[in-house]
Nucleic acid binder design. Structure first.
Length: 275
DNA sequence: CTCATTTGACCCAA
DNA sequence: TTGGGTCAAATGAG
């Protein structure tokens, strides 16, 4: 078949991948620096802030997708060959964990880490992102002043969403957080206005109260948590209400559309708050 | 009572 | 061997 688009041969693509990723990484680096500059500005332009977020996010996602594709190529045959064994590790430790715990309650921490999940990192002064997260752990990290908090999607159980995020305050700039997203949302939470619509109609303070149940409420446990939370959220409400939702809608298009996940989620909204 | 968070224990990967 | 990621009992909040 003739094609109008001169797509590169797979081999070429593969050999170029490293270079592509490298280029993207440079762009990502620049975007990160730009973000810091923008946020350090006394009166940062909200528009600029949003744009930088989007740029950074795009870089992150693109790199992650490429990297994941590379991993996938390498691993897929192994996965197929050793499905029995791998299902445990790939399909998140959850199910295996559940059955394990049924047999032996002692076996805490008996799990297989996800090794090839899509990851992306964001530096932000805001922790909440419109998704519903549930905290499942916190660790002090070596040589880090601040602990790292671990969150999983609140829809992990009802919708099987495997998204995870890790939040850690940055060393130098305590107003900023280093947020790592692992995996992608397969839930409808992000669409179903878990937070966004309600944010729109809530005052910042009432949002803070209500959000405690739906979005990351406490990744700053050992810190001067509530004060900081208030600061962060008050500072971020306007931005979050539109910009973040935009940002995630965009992310979704670039990443999540690949999986037919909407099937299991159906068309109905599944907002526990409305149930 | 239900659900989320905290926190120590445990296991895996480097 | 050790740091980091996850589990799950205990605890707290609504």
């Amino acid at each position: 078949m003739d094609t109008l688009y001169p797509w590169p041969e797979p081999e070429t693509l593969s050999s170029n991948k490293k270079g592509v990723i490298q280029q993207l990484a440079e762009g990502q680096q620049c975007a990160t620096e730009l973000q810091v500059i923008v946020l350090q500005n006394n009166k940062p332009s909200q528009q600029a802030e949003e744009l930088v977020q989007k740029i950074l996010w795009s870089f992150n996602q693109t790199i992650s997708m490429l990297a994941e594709a590379g991993h996938h190529d390498e691993v897929i045959s192994q996965n197929q060959a050793t499905c029995n064994d791998d299902c445990k590790s790939q399909d998140s430790s959850e199910s295996s964990k559940r059955s394990l715990s049924a047999f032996a309650k002692d076996k805490r921490g008996c799990y297989k880490r996800k090794r090839f999940a899509q990851t992306s990192t964001v530096v932000s002064d805001k922790i909440e992102d419109g998704h519903a997260w549930r905290k499942y752990g916190q660790k002090n990290i070596l040589n880090s002043k601040h602990p790292r908090s671990y969150f999983r999607c609140s829809h992990k159980h009802d919708q099987g969403c495997s998204a995870i995020k890790q939040v850690q305050r940055m060393e130098d700039d305590t107003q900023m957080y280093h947020i790592t997203y692992i995996g992608t949302h397969t839930c409808r939470g992000q669409y179903s206005s878990m937070a966004t619509p309600r944010i729109d109609r809530l005052s910042p303070i009432s949002k803070l109260e209500s959000e405690e149940q739906t979005t990351t409420p406490s990744d700053v446990t050992d810190l001067d948590s509530m004060t900081m939370w208030t600061d962060v959220m008050m500072g971020g409400v306007g931005f979050e209400a539109d910009a973040v939702s935009n940002m995630y809608s965009c992310t979704e298009i670039t990443c999540l559309d690949l999986e037919p996940v909407e099937l299991e989620n159906g068309l109905q909204f599944d907002d526990p708050d409305f149930a």
